[in-house]
Design a protein around this nucleic acid. Structure first.
Length: 192
DNA sequence: GGTGGGATTAGCT
DNA sequence: GCTAATCCCACCA
């Protein structure tokens, strides 16, 4: 793989635009045992406009501090005491916005991914925000790291889906401000 | 200082 | 469909 790291022109935009542009690009994790990678198939934007579902909406705390870094940093947190969620911080420093990576389609390191997700059907390996962090063994070690300077990154690809393959829907899994069309799904994305 | 609720998932009824 | 798992911390007292 000789793809370049995601351009600052993408991750410095606001979260809804970044969520759109991340579809089809590649999430890549480098490990001592090889490369794990997958095309991003589902994202969700959290904007800094008073959205109560945004972790940054009530100001900076130790937990959400990474969300106030400049666009291009990772924000990783633990939900329900059990699962990790991976977000790419977007926009300018201190703006407090991010994109949740909700799904990928594996392209590299299939064996390693399967080993991290025992007893799971192929289509369920990485089709959820906590499923993909488990599959890629991503945890809070990456919280606050910068994508261009981390063993976890996103690369440019020639696989950005055509507009008609991108559907926007209301968000899921949250109780506040659900009725906003900030979830982006690449329908018909390649399935492993 | 106590309490309640998560940006979820898997397993069971 | 329902619920347990299990940690952090925001919020109220």
């Amino acid at each position: 793989m000789d793809e370049s790291v995601l351009s600052p022109h993408v991750y410095t935009q606001q979260a809804d635009s970044v969520a759109f542009h991340l579809l089809g690009r590649r999430l890549v994790r480098y490990t001592s045992e090889g490369v794990l990678a997958g095309l991003i198939t589902e994202t969700e934007a959290y904007l800094p406009d008073g959205d109560p579902a945004n972790h940054a909406s009530r100001g900076e705390t130790p937990r959400n501090a990474s969300m106030f870094l400049a666009g291009g940093h990772w924000y990783v947190y633990l939900v329900y005491g059990v699962h990790y969620c991976l977000n790419l911080v977007t926009g300018r420093e201190q703006s407090g916005e991010a994109v949740l990576i909700r799904g990928v389609s594996p392209t590299h390191g299939h064996e390693h991914i399967r080993a991290n997700r025992p007893n799971v059907a192929p289509r369920d390996l990485t089709n959820g925000p906590a499923k993909l962090t488990k599959a890629f063994a991503i945890d809070t070690d990456w919280d606050g790291t910068f994508l261009a300077d981390s063993s976890l990154t996103i690369t440019e690809t020639d696989t950005h889906p055509p507009n008609e393959e991108i559907h926007t829907t209301d968000r899921v899994g949250i109780s506040k401000a659900r009725d906003r069309f900030l979830r982006y799904v690449w329908v018909g994305s390649p399935q492993y």
